[in-house]
């Protein structure tokens, strides 16, 4: 096994183990921290796929903002300082069998396609993927329209979140 494959197996163990802990642990703050660990594993994966920009943005956006938001939300919505009781519904076995079925279906689909067995080709030397990404996001015959729509979406989310969470409208 080459070094790359060893790193990939270790990273997948980290990601899947942390994801499993996220969905099964009883303490919610620990679930948010296990999510941070899973997201960090995904960062390592992006770095292995040579998507440097996405790896760093994953840390900044997901770990630095979304995970912090989750931790704040968990702390602000609890009645006492510690968790209690089981956090899983009583019919969790239906969800588990559904998950296993979907996984089996997807894996059989992936293995059945011989085209997915290819290995990565080397990126040609003169190609600067970062510059291509920047140009594609603002060039009119590439992806400037989804980019602008995403900015409007973020603005709407910002205004909406602040409005919903503010106490001005309540007359209790």
């Amino acid at each position: 096994m080459s070094v790359e494959q060893i790193i990939f197996v270790l990273t997948s163990l980290l990601i899947l183990g942390s994801a499993f802990m996220v969905v099964t642990t009883r303490k919610l703050v620990q679930a948010a921290l296990w999510l941070v660990s899973a997201l960090f594993g995904v960062t390592i994966l992006y770095a292995m796929l040579q998507a440097n920009f996405l790896a760093v943005v994953q840390v900044v956006v997901y770990i630095g903002a979304i995970a912090v938001l989750f931790i704040f939300a968990v702390m602000l919505t609890r009645k006492e300082l510690r968790d209690q009781g089981s956090q899983t519904r009583s019919n969790w076995w239906i969800a588990a069998s559904l998950g296993v079925l979907v996984l089996a279906g997807l894996v059989s689909l992936i293995i059945g396609q011989p085209a997915f067995n290819r290995t990565a080709e080397v990126i040609p030397a003169g190609v600067d993927t970062l510059r291509n990404l920047g140009t594609a996001l603002v060039s009119p015959d590439a992806y400037v329209l989804p980019f602008e729509v995403a900015s409007v979406l973020l603005l709407a989310a910002l205004v909406g979140a602040v409005f919903i969470a503010s106490r001005k409208g309540e007359e209790k």
């Binding site: 941070v36 440097n52 920009f53 760093v56 943005v57 840390v59 900044v60 770990i63 630095g64 903002a65 995970a67 912090v68 931790i71 704040f72 600067d128 970062l130």
Partner: peptide, 19 residues
């Protein structure tokens, strides 16, 4: 080639440590 963003990312990890 994304050194500047790496600087910001390290700051985010510090935030997490403090929480």
């Amino acid at each position: 080639n994304v050194g500047i963003l790496y600087l910001v990312a390290a700051g985010s990890l510090g935030t997490l440590a403090i929480i």
